[in-house]
Simulated assay, not measured.
Amino acid sequence: MSVAMQSIMENASPKRRYCFFILQQNLSSENQEKLLNQVVAFPQFSLSFIDVKQYLKSYAFKIREEDKICYTAETFFRLLLPWILADYDKALYFDGDTVCRIDVAEIFDLDLQDKLLAAVREFHGAAWYYKPNKTHNQSKKIYNEVLANLQQKDDYFQAGVLLWNLAGFREDWSIEKLLTLAVSKIWRLVDQDVLNFIAENKTLLLPAKYNYTVLFSELVKYLPKYLQEEYYEAGKDPKIIHYKPWDSLAYIQHFEFFWQYAVKSPFLKIIIANMKAKDLILTTPLHRHIRKCGWKFLLKCLFSREF
């Protein structure tokens, strides 16, 4: 999150005002102070911490046991934005594993008209959806009830970068109604599924360059041609990069931009320690990793990326 904030601040216009809102329930006072000190260097920015406990007392979000390694209940917090930010008509949401290379005002200034959200398609999900001859385990793993039931399957979007029509949400939904829907079942892709379910045909679809996530090339080939072209074009010069470093032991495309901002984060030592713990930064000889994972797996990772 700190790295994402640094990238946003460095690319922002000095002539505009920006407000960070961090939704949290257990963020330590020490970490809050570090983030506040980080923001102080940019006078056009302010930072507020919002404790969401008061909104969630009667709700328990359901996440599949096997998915808890990827998702926590905090991912549902973004559903609260229209009511937490009751004095605002629009807001931008970013996942913490993103890096912005543009002034975010470029997205904020878009005219949503009657749309509830602006977002980028979920290219990864679309590729798996179109992949033929999936094994039973693959189908079970990536099956997505919401995507499968959309009128336009290609329009399922990724919720890591969102422009919210907060006023429009408040007109169409109450916080009680939305949270009741969110806890009514186990959603395969948690709050992202919830938003796709309620915002079908009410989403302004943005080009892939505004939320670019690296895919294995073996998946990209299953996308419809027009989505392939959009994806490859975005990869040449992405404006917002959504990193998934835990997905790979191989080269991570555009990761140099992550480090460009990470080295200025007050959490740099923690970032490096976490990466070492996940073997994303090798601290043991490569032959030991080969022995552990096997040559075939390692070569598959190395040669299935688009460089």
Rank of each mutant, 00 (worst) to 15 (best):
A4E: 09
M5Y: 01
M5W: 07
M9W: 08
N11K: 06
S13Q: 12
K15I: 03
R17P: 07
Q25Y: 06
Q25G: 06
N26A: 11
S28W: 13
L36G: 02
L36N: 08
N37K: 12
F49A: 03
K57A: 15
A60T: 11
R64Y: 10
R64M: 04
I69R: 07
C70P: 04
T72E: 08
A73K: 13
F76N: 00
R78A: 01
L79S: 03
L81V: 02
A86F: 12
Y93G: 10
G96P: 14
A105M: 05
D109W: 11
D111C: 01
D111Q: 07
D114V: 15
A119I: 04
V120Q: 04
E122N: 15
E122H: 15
T135G: 12
T135D: 11
N137I: 05
Q138Y: 05
K140A: 11
I142C: 11
I142W: 15
Y143M: 02
E145I: 06
Q151T: 14
K153V: 09
Y156C: 03
G160C: 03
L166F: 04
G168N: 09
G168R: 05
F169G: 09
R170K: 12
W173L: 11
A182C: 00
A182Y: 00
V183S: 08
I186S: 05
W187V: 04
R188A: 14
L189S: 05
V190E: 00
A199L: 08
L206E: 06
K209Y: 02
T213P: 00
F216W: 15
S217P: 08
V220P: 07
L223F: 00
L227M: 15
A234Y: 01
A234N: 01
P238L: 01
P238W: 02
A250Y: 04
A250V: 04
H254S: 14
H254A: 14
E256I: 15
I270T: 10
I270S: 09
I272L: 12
M275Q: 13
K278L: 13
I281P: 02
I281D: 02
T283N: 08
H289E: 14
I290M: 03
R291I: 07
R291M: 00
C293A: 03
C293L: 05
F297H: 15
L298R: 03
